[in-house]
Structure formats: structure tokens, C-alpha cells
Design a protein around this nucleic acid. Structure first.
Ligand SMILES: NC(=O)c1ccc[n+]([C@@H]2O[C@H](COP(=O)([O-])OP(=O)(O)OC[C@H]3O[C@@H](n4cnc5c(N)ncnc54)[C@H](O)[C@@H]3O)[C@@H](O)[C@H]2O)c1
Ligand SMILES: NC(=O)c1ccc[n+]([C@@H]2O[C@H](COP(=O)([O-])OP(=O)(O)OC[C@H]3O[C@@H](n4cnc5c(N)ncnc54)[C@H](O)[C@@H]3O)[C@@H](O)[C@H]2O)c1
Lengths: 221, 221
DNA sequence: TATTCATTGTTAATTAAATAACAATACAAA
DNA sequence: TTTGTATTGTTATTTAATTAACAATGAATA
């Protein structure tokens, strides 16, 4: 990849990156259903956004459709993949193989060529040695060694809240490059590590808030 | 609630609503640790945002701290609660009691006074009749009836992808007011229903993308 | 062949969100 | 008492994201 292409990548808005992932997911399903082409307004409708937004994003990544047929699904999937996927497979570990850990492993399994969960870690002897969706679960003791051996670059944290800080520190120490934290305890990591946190309670409370507001509006009308 | 207060609620930026949920979560933990007051820069540090952002959000909801002690944690928790929580308890149902469903039920249980998951639904006879974190799992057949009976206003979807559309339709038909969809299949709902969708693959792909970009930067240096 | 039409691609404008700037304050220390 | 300092609260500015506007296109149709 030359430095011009690199600059395109770095200049893409964060929100566009998120949508590219969503576009690809939607396109893959359309492709499976036998569709070959798709219009911007069709993509927009699936994802609850505007057609202009779709076209603008595709403009940013330099993709052109055809005037009467729209976008070639296969081509667009491939282009998005060259942009958001890494060149080599990116290996992922998940720490905490409880309910959430299992859900994630099962969900991600086989979905993406360039993204592979290759190891789970837990401290519960009942979990250690088990296999979920072909992914072996190792003792947390082996975390650092395995991360280096298997060239794991991303760590997902799904342990109980009280262990979050400790696990994050272990991942950082082991040389991880990115962390996805699903526990309700925010973590602090050095700047060179990309961190993403998500808590479903915030989503749920957001839904509850807007439901409440719309109800109060109704009442007052 | 008078219409002036109502207008404040409606004018709050969406991002502020999300952060209010995060502030409260962080504040609750600080409170549990015995802290009584907190500065804007402390909140900011926990949540990886700027102190100005925190102060601005608190200004929007009309809360004032004191100059030398910062914000009273208890007071702030209470104020945020009056803003984002509903007056009466808001009841929630979760459809699909698999790994993800269980993780969510366990996580939400007892966390919020005004938000209660009161029912799970599934179509698997092995799941029907079971109880997870005190929440009974009912047959999907009874969805509509139970939603009305128990005054359930929010539905969480965590069934396999192929059933998403069907479940969403059932929830809408039963008169649900808000939907939180965790499946990778986006749903369409009428305008008066508040919809929130989240897919962890997008978060993971985002992490992978920024890890890739930072690696390419390193290489080219 | 000329016209209509739906669609794309792109620039311009708008809106939303975040940040900077700074006055006001109140306490601590000199 | 005065000065210095850390912090809040708020307005102004900047940046990011979205939406609007519209020319260009090219296939379908008259
Ligand atoms: N972000 C979200 O949307 C969301 C949703 C649900 C749950 N959660 C959070 O995710 C986490 C996991 O939830 P869950 O329902 O899977 O819990 P769980 O108890 O089912 O699983 C936790 C797992 O972590 C393991 N573990 C505990 N300490 C460990 C350690 N020191 N090292 C390695 N493994 C350890 C346990 O043995 C267990 O297998 C919790 O923090 C929970 O609050 C987040
Ligand atoms: N958004 C995310 O972050 C995320 C993460 C993991 C999984 N997922 C998705 O969440 C969903 C659930 O994942 P999981 O790992 O819990 O799967 P799972 O198979 O463990 O659970 C699905 C449950 O739904 C039940 N079910 C199936 N059809 C049903 C129907 N018609 N009515 C009611 N119940 C029905 C099944 O019996 C099962 O109990 C899947 O769509 C998965 O792709 C999302």
C-alpha cells in the first residue's frame, strides 16, 4: 500500500468506517440472496440512513456505480474489504468465556476471512480446556505467552467488572494493539492502543429515555 | 412534569443522553467506593472525554457544582436519574434466551430501579419454563398476551438472524414502544417506535481497522 | 432522433458536536 | 488583607457529520 492510499484511509471519518462495516454486512446478505446490483436508496433503507449519505461514503472510498444499475454488490464488497480489512488475518483473543464470551465467539466464527478469534482465556478450571466454536479456552496464566506465540493483536474483555483493570493491564503488557471492552468498567490504556468500549445498558437506557419522552409528549397533547 | 422541563429533555443532544447514562454508571461506582464529591476532570478521565464536555453536559441539565469540592455525587446521580429514568418502572422483555440473552439478563438484573427485564421468550421447549436471574422464560406464543398484561414497553431482540424480522413484527403488533436489536439483521419499524441497533462485529472491525492503519503508519516510518 | 426519467457524483450549505476561551468564584497561602 | 490558584459555568469558535442542491449521465420511450 502506497502512502497516498494510506492517506485516504486515515482521512476517512470515523462514522464512515462504522458504516462501511455495516454496508458490507448488508451487502453480503444481499449477495447471498442472489442480488447482483443495488441502489443507494436500497442500502439506505436497510440501514436507516439517507441515500446521500451512502453515496457520499462511497465517493470517499472512490467507488463508482452505474447510472441505471446502481452498485455492483460483489465489487463493492471487495473494495470495502480492501479498505477495512487488514492484509494478513488479524488474530483476536477473548478473555472471559462466560455467557457473553460464548455469544461473541459463536457470532464471529467464520464470518470474516481477515478476522479470527483464535483463543479464549478464563480462570475457571471448568472452562479451561473446553472448546467453543472450535476456539480453545486456555488458562489466563498463559495469556501473555499465547498472545505472543499466536500473534494476537486484538483483545476482547468479557470478564466480571472487578477484573477488568487487571485484564486490560495484562493485555497491554503482552503487547496487544487494540482492545474491545464489554465490561461496565472503563479502562485506561496507553495512547498507541486503540480502545473501543460498549455497554448495552447505555443503549437500553437511551431507548427507555426516548420512549419516556415520546410518552410524555402524547400525554401533554 | 411541566412543558418547560419537557422541552429541556427534548433539546438534549443524543450524545449527551448517552453520556448521562455513562456518567451515572461511573458515579454509582464512585459512590460505592465512598467518594462524596468529584471534579469534572475526574469524570472526564474515567470516560476518556474532556472536562469541558462534562461541564457542558451538566450545564445543559442545569446542575451546578461547588468551586472547590466539585460535584456532589449523590445529588448528581439523583438529578441524572430524574432526567433519563421514567417515572414509573419501565418493563422490558427479551426475545431469545440463548447465550446473549442470558448475558444481558444477568447483567441488567437489579442494576436500575426504573428498568426491569420482566420476561424472556423463546421457542425452544428446553428454554421455556426455565428461570434466568429470576426472569421466567415463556413460550414465544405468549409474547403478545404477556406484553399487554405486564405492560412491557421495550423489547430486546436476541434470536438467530433469520427470525429477526418476524420477532420485530410481533413486538410491534403487540404495541411495544421501543426496540433494542442485537441481531445482525436491521429491522424496519414504524416511526413512533424508537429503535436502537448494535452489532459487535462493527465495533470489532473498527478496532481492526485502526490497528491496521496504525501498523501501516509504523511500517512506513 | 429527441425527450423523459431515475440515478449517480460532487460541491455547497446546514446542523450537530466538541473544543477553546475566559470571566467568576472561593478558598488557601503569603 | 492580598495574591495566587484551581475550578466552575458559559459563550464563542472550530471541527465533524449530515443533508441539500444540482449538474451529468445514459438507458428507456415516445
Ligand atoms: N457490554 C455489554 O453489553 C454487556 C452485556 C452483558 C454483560 N456484560 C459484562 O460482560 C462481562 C461478562 O458477562 P457474562 O454474562 O459473560 O459473565 P459470566 O460470569 O457468564 O462470564 C465471566 C467469565 O469470566 C471468567 N473470569 C472471571 N475472572 C476471570 C479472570 N480474572 N481471568 C479470566 N477469566 C475470568 C469467569 O470464569 C467467567 O467464565 C461482565 O463484566 C458483564 O457485566 C456486558
Ligand atoms: N450484537 C451483538 O453484539 C451480538 C453478539 C453476539 C450475537 N449476536 C446475535 O444475537 C443473536 C443471538 O445470539 P446467541 O449467541 O444468543 O444465539 P443462541 O443460539 O445462543 O440463542 C438464540 C436463542 O433464540 C431462540 N430462538 C430461536 N428462534 C426463536 C424464535 N422464533 N422465537 C423465540 N426464540 C427463538 C433459540 O431457542 C435460542 O435460545 C444472534 O442473532 C446473533 O447473531 C449479536
Amino acid at each position: 500500500m502506497n502512502s497516498q492510499e494510506e492517506n485516504i484511509l486515515k482521512s476517512l471519518p470515523h462514522k464512515t468506517i462504522e458504516r462501511l462495516s455495516q454496508y458490507r454486512r448488508a451487502l453480503l446478505f444481499c449477495f447471498d440472496e442472489g442480488k447482483t446490483h443495488i441502489f443507494s436508496h436500497e442500502i439506505a433503507r436497510i440501514l436507516h440512513i439517507t441515500p446521500v449519505q451512502v453515496r457520499r461514503d462511497l465517493m470517499l472510498i472512490g467507488y463508482s456505480g452505474t447510472l441505471r444499475k446502481g452498485y455492483n454488490i460483489q465489487e463493492l464488497i471487495d473494495l470495502i474489504s480492501t479498505i477495512i480489512d487488514s492484509h494478513e488475518v488479524m488474530n483476536v483473543a477473548i478473555v472471559g468465556m462466560g455467557d457473553l464470551g460464548r455469544a461473541l465467539v459463536n457470532y464471529v466464527k467464520g464470518k470474516r476471512h481477515k478476522l479470527a478469534i483464535v483463543a479464549g482465556f478464563d480462570n475457571n478450571p471448568d472452562k479451561i480446556g473446553t472448546v467453543v466454536a472450535d476456539i480453545p479456552c486456555y488458562s489466563i496464566e498463559r495469556l501473555s505467552k499465547m498472545i505472543r506465540e499466536k500473534n494476537i493483536q486484538i483483545g476482547i474483555i468479557s470478564v466480571p467488572r472487578s477484573y477488568t483493570t487487571d485484564i486490560a493491564a495484562k493485555l497491554v503488557e503482552a503487547g496487544i494493539k487494540g482492545i474491545l471492552n464489554f465490561t461496565p468498567k472503563p479502562v485506561n490504556v496507553p495512547d498507541h492502543i486503540y480502545l473501543e468500549e460498549y455497554d448495552m445498558l447505555t443503549s437500553l437506557e437511551k431507548v427507555a429515555f426516548y420512549v419516556k419522552v415520546s410518552q410524555e409528549k402524547e400525554k401533554s397533547e
